[in-house]
Nucleic acid binder design. Structure first.
Lengths: 214, 214
DNA sequence: ACCTGAACACCGTTCAAGT
DNA sequence: ACCTGAACACCGTTCAAGT
């Protein structure tokens, strides 16, 4: 039709999403307003509604777009346990690179969405480990809960999060611990240690039991 | 002064907090408005500001009050590992009982606040385990991250959270796993298993190494 | 098909003014 | 000391009307 080539610089959903993405990355999700977005695009707010529905839809489309741009995760290593660990570490790194995607997903009640890709990859490795059915589902849930919890907590606590010693730890031991807590905790080491512990319990120990049995 | 006994049914910060708490428990944090609160108290909105400052202050006071009402956690068991596990399980139960406290704390950037009590108790047990200084601080961080992550994730994912199998899992194994994922995952079992794994790695294995060395 | 003006029903917050 | 009216500067959203 004639409208197809007319107004090649017309606004479209993609350009709205572009602007929304820039705005969110600059000022955060809470500061994104339909009116502000319209102004930024040189248009009145009803126009935004015409193109992307409403704010809720806009945010959901933003999530879809942002997660499309998520780097593809490539498991490394030969041992399945090693490969699962690498998937988790890679996803943690990805989410750190895109804090607004985490914020958006959470706000829209779509947090589980963040882990869809990792879920597939981990499931594949679990099967390679020889897990089946309910046992594999349980292991998958455990790993995803551990990973997801870490991602959310890291974002939830203030960035200058310090574990603070309680003032009424009276003993010498307490004071010593308090002093160490004032220092920076190596969050990556915490993640690695606890992840290994979970994987060990779910996979390695199971494998050892299996070998003894046969 | 004379004002002290006059107007015994006058509004005060406590009554404002009472009403706010009821409103939050009924409709959630997002639905709490200063104007609505005023109406509920038979007063105009500036009055609310006079008593509690502003919305931010109101929410922070709400957090303080709600966490005052948090049940005291009593570690059970004789083994320190058992006692730490009981602390974590108890705190998880408490947070489940007060989802709005979790929501509020998160929204105000005070999530770490939720775990203050547990932190003290766990630190005490860690010292009883013979941990010191940096090692104790690390273990404490690991346990709190695990616990905190679980609490936040549980609240973040939709309540009817199911791990869904990807549609393109082509193998029989994949389809079998997918079928099991459709079922309900026993979240409590996941929590228990992963918690034990973390505690084992941090405490039990260390203890074993210690015994071998001496 | 695409855009606007104008309106509705909300917000948080301030402040001079009342008693 | 406690409360209100009125206002400011925002929201998300809808809808008839324009081109």
């Amino acid at each position: 039709v004639a409208g197809r080539e007319a107004g090649r610089d017309a606004l479209n959903p993609e350009r709205v999403l572009d602007a929304a993405m820039v705005a969110v990355e600059r000022d955060g999700v809470a500061a994104l307003s339909m009116r502000g977005l319209a102004t930024e695009l040189g248009v009145r707010s009803p126009t935004i509604y015409w193109h992307v529905g409403n704010r809720d839809e806009l945010l959901n489309r933003l999530i879809d777009r942002m997660s499309d741009e998520l780097g593809n995760i490539e498991p490394t290593g030969t041992d399945p346990v090693e490969r699962i660990a690498s998937i988790c570490t890679a996803l943690l790194a990805e989410t750190r690179r895109r804090p607004h995607l985490v914020e958006l997903s959470r706000g829209q009640g779509r947090s589980e969405f963040l882990f869809a890709k990792a879920q597939e990859l981990i499931a594949h490795e679990l099967i390679a480990c020889g897990l089946h059915g309910a046992e594999a589902a349980f292991a998958l849930a455990a790993i995803l809960y551990h990973l997801g919890g870490f991602v959310l907590l890291e974002q939830a606590v203030s960035s200058d999060f310090r574990l603070r010693g309680a003032s009424h730890w009276e003993s010498d031991e307490g004071r010593e611990l308090g002093a160490h807590l004032q220092g920076v905790v190596d969050v990556d080491a915490v993640f690695d240690t606890t992840l290994r512990a979970v994987l060990d319990a779910l996979l390695v120990e199971r494998r050892a039991r299996h070998e003894v049995a046969t």
